[in-house]
Design a protein around this nucleic acid. Structure first.
Length: 221
DNA sequence: GTCCAGGGCCTAC
DNA sequence: GTAGGCCATGGA
C-alpha cells in the first residue's frame, strides 16, 4: 500500500467521513469555490447568506444583478470586486455555452470539462478541480495550500513542485474515485486546521511517527 | 496591531 | 517559467 493510502486511512480513522462541501446545488459549489479563493470559509458563508437573501443562486440571477450590488453582497468574502467579476463571467459563460447549466458543462469527460473551466478568467487549477470534484463528482484531485503544507511537513513534497505535479502524484497513487478524492481533501483540511497552520503547532496528532516535522521537533537541540 | 485564510492575475525579468 | 505585487474582509 502506498504511503498516500496509509495517510488517508489514518486521517479517516482520526476524523471519520467528512461529507464535505456544504451546498445545495452544483452552481452553489462553484460560487463557493470562487468566493473561498484565499479566504476563510466563515467569510464565504456570510457572503453566500447575503446572496441568498437577495437573489436565487442561478446563473441567470448572477448575470442580471447589478455589479455594485453583487460586490456589496459578497463583500465579507474579501477581494469582492474581482470575485464579483469572476462570478458574472462564469455565469455568462454557462449561459452562452451550456444553457445556463453547470450540470451540462460537467457532463463532459473530465479532461474536456477541466480544460473549459481553466480557460475562464478567475478559475485557476484549484478552483477548477474543486468544481469538478465537489459539484460534478468527477475524479479530479484538489491540491490546495493545506495539501502542500501537510505533505511538505510529512516530507513528501519540497515546495518546488507545480500544481499539476502534485495533483498527478496523488492521482497515480490513490484509486481514481471521486468519493476518495472528496474525502481525502476534506480530511487534509480538517487535519491542517487542527495541527498544520502556518505557525507550527505540531501536537499529538494521528500522523505522529510518519511526520518529519514532528520527528524533528522531538529531537533535543 | 499582526497574522491568517479552502487563489489567481498581471507584470517584469 | 517564475518570482513578486496586488486584490480585501473578518476572526483569532
Amino acid at each position: 500500500m502506498s504511503d498516500l493510502k496509509i495517510i488517508f486511512e489514518k486521517l479517516t480513522v482520526a476524523y471519520g467521513p467528512r461529507h464535505w462541501w456544504p451546498a445545495e446545488t452544483p452552481l452553489e459549489v462553484a460560487i463557493g469555490a470562487i468566493l473561498t479563493q484565499n479566504t476563510n470559509w466563515k467569510n464565504v458563508e456570510m457572503a453566500i447568506a447575503n446572496l441568498r437573501s437577495e437573489i436565487r443562486l442561478t446563473s441567470q440571477a448572477l448575470i442580471e444583478i447589478d455589479r455594485d450590488k453583487l460586490e456589496q453582497l459578497i463583500r465579507p468574502s474579501g477581494f469582492f470586486r474581482q470575485k464579483a467579476e469572476r462570478l458574472q463571467l462564469f455565469a455568462e459563460h454557462l449561459s452562452a455555452h451550456h444553457d445556463g447549466s453547470l450540470e451540462q458543462l460537467l457532463r463532459q469527460p473530465l479532461a474536456a470539462a477541466r480544460h473549459e473551466l481553466l480557460r475562464l478568467k478567475g478559475i485557476g487549477a484549484e478552483t477548477a478541480d474543486s468544481i469538478l470534484l465537489y459539484a460534478g463528482a468527477l475524479p479530479s484531485f484538489v491540491v490546495d495550500a493545506y495539501t502542500r503544507r501537510l505533505f511538505e511537513r510529512l516530507g513528501y513534497l519540497h515546495g518546488k513542485e507545480s500544481y499539476e505535479q502534485v495533483r498527478s502524484q496523488f492521482m497515480t497513487q490513490i484509486p481514481v474515485d471521486p468519493n476518495v478524492y472528496n474525502e481525502y481533501h476534506a480530511l487534509i483540511v480538517e487535519h491542517c486546521k487542527r495541527f498544520c497552520r502556518k505557525q507550527p503547532r505540531c501536537g499529538d496528532c494521528c500522523l505522529n511517527g510518519i511526520c518529519q516535522k514532528t520527528r524533528e521537533a522531538s529531537v533535543p537541540a
